[in-house]
Amino acid sequence: MTDINAPRGPASPPKPAVRTARPSVMQRAAAERTQTTIGRRRVVNVVMVGVTFGAAILATLPLIFILGHLIVAGASSINVDFFTQIPKPPGEAGGGMANAMVGTLVLILAASAFGLPIGIGAGLYLAENRGTHLANAVRFLSDVLNGLPSIVMGIFAWQFLVKPMAKFTALAGGIALGAMMIPLVTRTTEEMIRIVPVSLREAALALGYSRWRTSLVVVLRTALPGIVTGALVAVSRIAGETAPLLFTVLGNQFWSASLREPIAALPLQIFNFAISPYDQQHALAWAGALVLIGIVLIISLAARFATRSRFGLGGD
């Protein structure tokens, strides 16, 4: 029952010992097993491989259908106008979503400006104060914040920012989105900083580095590729968010990049066009969705490559 002689893959870390309660259950199962025929058990095994494989196929089908339909329905409306024009009045042909793309970019920048410093700072705190009550509480609450429905964040931003100012602004939406980035950025920052070997921190301290310099110049710098990945994942998550924008940025049919004005956003525009009665706007919604997915996928892929390349930790 020990694993001493078992072949072990190079990637498998040392495993804890077998719990004593388990074997007896399994031994009973094994005893029952000997009464059935080997052949039937093999068939069950093969069937279950098939069933789980089927589940995997079934799970990827929606993705293929959705992406396929997006390309078929959206590509025909994608042209130069789509990237350079603002929407035409309902029912008129042509027009584009350029203002919505600019708006999404502005919102991403505003959200990052708010969410990244808090997320990274909190992540640093959690990594450097592990085991303290405050750190545990903050980590748990960060998870709670991560599970908060985006619509709740939306009505909070309305109550907190829009209502007092009596005005829908891009800023309110940016802060709502930024708040949603915080837990993800906090979590990845903490994890990436924990990967940095303690010896590196000690080496810097032994050179006469102060704690803050050690943390920022050596530890944070070393963990940076991983943190960039976390930030990109967080951005890709909020780029397509709609619910927090409904009552904060409102949407805008015209050009605007100001944080103090209502602003257009790609997901919001897709929503409004999708529920409109005009075929012309439906087509633009498909095109917008294709572009939005493209943006999200590009950011996600960039996030993967940010980790893969140059994560230079340790010498061996």
Binding site: L200, A204, R221, T222
Partner: peptide, 13 residues
């Protein structure tokens, strides 16, 4: 008072 550790610790970045 400088110090050198068991394992090499060059700053990777």
């Amino acid at each position: 008072i400088g110090m050198v550790f068991q394992r090499p610790t060059p700053f990777p970045t």
